[in-house]
Design a protein around this nucleic acid. Sequence first.
DNA 1: TCTTGACTTAGAGTGCGCTCGAAGCCGTAG
DNA 2: CTACGGCTTCGAGCGCACTCTAAGTCAAGA
Lengths: 135, 135
Amino acid sequence: MKISDLAKRCGLSAHTLRYYERIGLLPYADRDRSGQRDYDASILSWIEFLGRLKTTGMPIRDMLLYAKLADSGKVTFSERRKLLEVHRERVRANLADLEACLRVLDGKIASYAEAEERMRDDKRNIADTPARARA
Amino acid sequence: MKISDLAKRCGLSAHTLRYYERIGLLPYADRDRSGQRDYDASILSWIEFLGRLKTTGMPIRDMLLYAKLADSGKVTFSERRKLLEVHRERVRANLADLEACLRVLDGKIASYAEAEERMRDDKRNIADTPARARA
DNA sequence: TCTTGACTTAGAGTGCGCTCGAAGCCGTAG
DNA sequence: CTACGGCTTCGAGCGCACTCTAAGTCAAGA
């Protein structure tokens, strides 16, 4: 698979894929005889997992640490698990924050809706009131 | 209230508060006779709301738009409501994504835990096996 | 009076995560 | 044969949201 094919499949740009390889987030890809990267489809699941880490707000430097551990084989299982457990707690805390914010947002939206409703009522009342009474 | 007091109360640095004022996220604060900002406590609820927007991932340029609408009084109620409704949908989508990621993370952690468990079992079995059988 | 420390401004610098540009190589279609 | 598109590398540039520095002012306490 060429870099543009992989880009289409995983949703990252070719630029970004090269950047990820450069910084060590993706393993050095095999090159064909003309020097072009030739990817194995198995890279997709790794990229997908990186996407999960990214979505959940893990900074690249932490992903690099995880990638380095993953390169070192089974002996780093417990380290990797601990890293993910720590991250999971951050994600949970973040989720709780977001839910709280969402409720505030709901409240704010509702209060605007009510205010708009009241303004419509006021207009109607004025319109329904005879001109003499308004003066 | 001086800027350092406000900074302590709201959790932003004085630098950031001045920056927010500069870009228009905070209203121009009254200055005392020596030119120092003198804040009214009422600014706190606005800063807190900005924090909610920030937590939920709203970029500053959108907060600026909201701030500008808020400055224009009641006539922008429905615009403000719509802006927040759009944002709320993004937040909900983001929450759903995060929850999905969290489940993936749980699965990954569980698979590491199982692998570690199996490795411990293997070691124990080897230790329990008489040396002649191991040879 | 002098020192201290918090404040003021304008503007430069930082860290992150890309994103793009330039210059050049390679393989295929016309 | 040549033109074209897509690939290569290296390094510069960008957008965001701060974060800090420098140079100067001011008010209160020893």
